[in-house]
């Protein structure tokens, strides 16, 4: 049986106690997107300020458990200042680490992982995020860890479809 130390790594508790990029952004101009975990009632709000396909700023609000909150905190730190493509690639790598392999994580034009041209990074290349690897041993908690990432994907999709609209 997996022990608590596999789940509650020190870095996770640190992000939980001192979440990065906590707060809100005025929307608009920022994009606001909500995610829910219907199992536990957790909700997360991600504010994304994307300019010229770069995530210039990101804020996280909402409530949740240590896993969902620390995952959101690490995610915000990891994508801030990076391009939308880099953020999407990170989503794929993170979900891969969570043992979630989706055929269509791709873009609006139906692109797949290959079409998006990004490789899946292993845990060793994910920096702090690798601390969440232990969550896989607690299947119920995978949804906690991926809540913010699914919400991010939804936000990026919405931003891109708005940009594509005439």
């Amino acid at each position: 049986m997996a022990g608590l130390e596999d789940l509650y790594r020190e870095i996770i508790l640190d992000h939980y106690r001192s979440p990065r990029n906590r707060g809100e952004l005025p929307a608009p101009p920022a994009h606001r997107v909500e995610g829910f975990n219907p199992l536990c009632g957790d909700e997360i709000v991600v504010f994304l300020d994307v300019v010229d396909r770069v995530v210039v700023d990101v804020k996280i609000s909402g409530q949740g458990c240590s896993i969902s909150q620390s995952s959101a905190s690490m995610m915000s730190a990891a994508i801030k200042g990076h391009t939308v493509e880099q953020a999407r690639a990170l989503v794929r790598s993170f979900k891969s680490m969570m043992s979630i392999h989706e055929a269509h994580l791709g873009t609006e034009d139906g692109g797949t992982e290959q079409a998006a041209g990004a490789e899946i990074l292993g845990p060793d290349s994910l920096g702090e995020l690798a601390a969440l690897q232990g969550v896989v041993k607690f299947p119920v908690r995978i949804k906690c860890a991926t809540l913010s990432w699914n919400t991010l994907t939804q936000g990026l999709d919405e931003i891109e479809s708005e940009a594509a609209a005439p």
């Binding site: 608590l4 509650y8 957790d42 240590s66 908690r141 906690c144």
Partner: peptide
């Protein structure tokens, strides 16, 4: 102030 998921996870052990 501990989230119920975390409470239940620790209790489970």
């Amino acid at each position: 102030g501990v989230h119920p998921h975390d409470v239940a996870q620790v209790l489970d052990t």
